[in-house]
Design a protein around this nucleic acid. Sequence first.
RNA 1: GCGCCCGUAGCUCAGUCGGAUAGAGCAUCGGAUUCCUAAUCCGGGGGCCACAGGUUCGAAUCCUGUCGGGCGCACCA
Length: 594
Amino acid sequence: MPPDANTLTALPMTTSQTLYVAFAAKIDAILATLEAEAVLPAGSPRGNVSVEPPRDAAHGDLATNAAMVLAKHAATNPRALAEKIVDHLTRDPLIESAEIAGPGFINLRLAPAVWREEIAAIAALGDSYGKSDMGAGTTVNVEYVSANPTGPMHMGHCRGAVVGDALASLLEFAGHKVIREYYVNDAGGQVDTLARSAHLRYREALGEDIGEIPEGFYPGAYLIPVGEAAAQEFGDRYQRADEAEWLAVFRAFAVERMMAVIKSDLAQLGIKHDVFSSEAALQAAGKPEAAEAWLRAQDLVYDGVLEAPKGKAPPEDWEPVELPLFRSTQFGDDQDRPIRKSDGKWTYFGADLAYHMQKAETADALIDVWGADHAGTVKRIKAAVAALSAGNGDVTPFDVKLVQMVQLLRDGEPAKMSKRSGNFITIADMVEEVGKDVVRFTMLTRKPEAQMDFDFAKVVEASKDNPVFYVQYAHARICSTLRKAAEAGITPSDTHLDLLTEADLALVKQAAQFPREVEAAARAREPHRIAFYLYDLAAAFHAFWNLGNDNPEKRFILEHKADVSAARLFLASQIGQIVRNGLAILGVEAVEEL
RNA sequence: GCGCCCGUAGCUCAGUCGGAUAGAGCAUCGGAUUCCUAAUCCGGGGGCCACAGGUUCGAAUCCUGUCGGGCGCACCA
């Protein structure tokens, strides 16, 4: 225990240290002392000791279960042990009181000075308040969206896009280096269909009557401009040519156009990837072959025959075929998985396996954000990463975040979103209708693994009940108050923070949770927690604000009490800072006026 | 049939490494506006945390089983 452990000067102004960590360290030190005094047996396991704010604020600022967890080891009862711990705690001048409650909790109340210092810390750190060095600068590759380049983005992609992007920002805020990556599936059969569909529109642009779009082509009108651009680019050179002549050309041409559309859709959501990886380029570089060779050398790929699918009637054209199979069953999958098709081309999985190996070369950890419709492929890709990273000598941590389906409703009616039918609602439509901030915040106000309905009509019509406005309103109110204060000639100042009341400090306590929330959310990889935290913070602020309705002494702007007013405005300004920091993680704008 | 996800108030959802009397919003009922933004706030009613066992000082939370909903289940992506 360092000699200055009883002062907060031991609390360095780094981005990692939180108030709660500092007090947890104090309690840990006390437990060490008790061991030295033989109150506790040496080496008592302290892993389950928690130091955290109690759920009910009436219980104080901090609570620890130390006495309950360790009583058995000390051969005593929790309350007796708690008294010994409390003896030490009350010697700390920053701890105003320590009480034993319930089955043996120790509830602490911290001195007001602690909270005043926290206000100063927020001000000093500004946009960095809440940042953590938990990530220790390690690189995390977050792959998200990765929509097939066969059309504009639709609602099905939207949730994964927002969650992935917020997750990436959250991890950055928590001290990771983050690579935001998009895997472009530009090598499969769907891209051939895209090329043929674009060629059809190209002939149309050249004046042919193509009639109804035949089965097996993408009918969407979004291909019309692609056809026109192709006509511009190629003239009539490919109009009557054999498919073999133009297929590759149109594939590349159409994919490029589609990616431009997708990037523009993403930009509307405020999303920008660092890296776009092409499946075709991956294959051209021979990465799947390299992966296969390595896996064969490990006997993790063999030639074998798949069993017929169970539990339902097998497809009519099913027949046993020998294929190169990856032994994913060795890693917990239900069956081994083919990496090549019977025509010798790579399966999606075969290429994806090589792709993950490639990603692992430049990152310490990988995260994929997928739609829940791909849940069935999680085990095999996890198996693949486990096998491949074992080859690098160390295991690359790998996590797949499944984002559940969004049921899109319009006036209660389900809206279909199949690209093939050409009938879908695009991101662009949606952002135009409800706005980026509403889309993003709404997608982040429930945990991603739960299904959600998104009723278009409801979100638009009831938009004033949308939580995003509630949070933004808190920020706008703060900004407005600061403007008003400036007009009245009052400048926010930290010189009289000692004049702040209990109610003021209650607000600070809530604000001081932010760094904890960031770390918890980053650890769990759940950005939605930030959204809920901001909602709660906004609620606390609004409640505080309304105290001023009943009691004018509790307002922010008090012309007759410039000292208190300056301090309270300083506090308000820091609350605003936290709202900004939190919204920045979510990619939502912190507006200054509504 | 198998795998994964979900099941918490009438509805939509939170719930930290297992912690104290399970919380919000909407809806409903009753209040607050000569005043810094009422797009706000305060209060009431509303619960078998799907069900049954187990683990332990303590379970909405962890384990097992059952029921209900969603997604997936040969070489598609």
